[in-house]
């Protein structure tokens, strides 16, 4: 449930940079530093506790907050979880005016939005992040969860080594249930291409839409035959051409698991690399302008290198 204007006003009035927030139950005090962003049900602030920075989400939608905390806790139990932020504290706060809020504190992820990262560093990174995301999704799915609200805004790239992380787990749903929270553009139900049941293929549809969104920053609305429309949009992006077939299969929920999709993605990358090796030697090449395949071949080598590096640092 989204907050209305009045509720936003009250929250922004009660919680401001500079104030100290003391938890009712655990008694820890957090110094609010600046606003990082706002979600559907609350605001996230950068705060300081014991000289360390952390992210603090606060809202008066207290039951929705409790549900989010439950998800963060369950994800925290996943071994070697590198998917979402770590949960540090959960508490209530009563403002000097007597309003009651719930808040939780999590690890502060300092990163760059996926979309600007790819725009800045080039499309060589697409394959890298696709593989990383599929890995993360696979881990999540194997533990019985579906991310739900997968979208560009929820993806951050943290540096050294560059790794994609997700920030808002509000939509994360147990497999087999109804998706808790979604955004129309990324929702296969909206496009008439599937149900809103939490299953791995739901995330894989959103995955394909994430990479479309990067090249259609203004989004687009549904037309009469959505499947054709989305296929056309995929075909319209040159940078996505090696991944066309895979993305289309994700759009029509053709993959049951992210593992299947990852396998095919790795095959595509491998094939591109072979083409590259075959087409580079010999004087023939010099007489032609570098073909698209050569470029893509170069890209795929980069992809594999970065992917291996990111695996090493996990």
């Amino acid at each position: 449930m989204k907050m209305n204007n009045q509720e936003w006003k009250k929250l922004n009035n009660d919680v401001r940079p500079g104030i100290k927030l003391r938890g009712k139950w655990h008694g820890k005090t957090y110094l609010i530093q600046k606003k990082l962003g706002a979600g559907a049900i609350g605001v996230v602030y950068l705060c300081e506790y014991n000289g360390k920075q952390a992210a603090l989400k606060i809202s008066d939608k207290r039951s929705s907050m409790t549900v989010e905390v439950n998800v963060l806790k369950s994800l925290g139990k996943v071994q070697g979880n590198r998917l979402g932020p770590y949960l540090l504290d959960v508490d209530d706060w009563i403002s000097p005016q007597g309003s009651r809020y719930s808040f939780y504190v999590m690890e502060y992820l300092k990163g760059e939005p996926l979309i600007t990262y790819i725009q800045r560093r080039g499309e060589a990174w697409i394959g890298v992040f696709m593989l990383q995301l599929l890995d993360a999704l696979q881990e999540l799915h194997q533990n019985g969860w579906v991310f739900g609200d997968l979208k560009v805004e929820n993806l951050l790239v943290v540096s050294s080594p560059p790794k994609v992380r997700w920030v808002d787990v509000g939509g994360t749903t147990q497999i087999g249930r109804a998706i808790k929270e979604y955004t129309e553009f990324y929702d296969r139900g909206y496009w008439g291409l599937g149900s809103r049941k939490a299953e791995p293929s739901y995330d894989l549809f959103a995955f394909a839409m994430v990479f479309l969104q990067i090249y259609y920053p203004n989004k687009f609305v549904k037309e009469a035959s959505p499947q054709k429309q989305l296929f056309r949009k995929i075909d319209g992006v040159k940078a996505l051409s090696p991944y066309r077939a895979i993305l289309k299969k994700a759009i029509i929920s053709n993959y049951d698991t992210s593992e299947q999709m990852k396998k095919e993605l790795l095959q595509v990358i491998y094939k591109l690399q072979r083409k590259n090796i075959q087409s580079t030697p010999g004087p023939v090449h010099q007489t032609h302008p570098p073909s698209v395949f050569v470029n893509i071949g170069g890209i795929s080598i980069l992809v594999i290198i970065y992917y291996v590096i990111s695996l090493l640092f996990q």
Partner: peptide
């Protein structure tokens, strides 16, 4: 109906 019929 799409949303609610995704429930158990």
């Amino acid at each position: 109906s799409i949303s609610l019929n995704a429930r158990i």
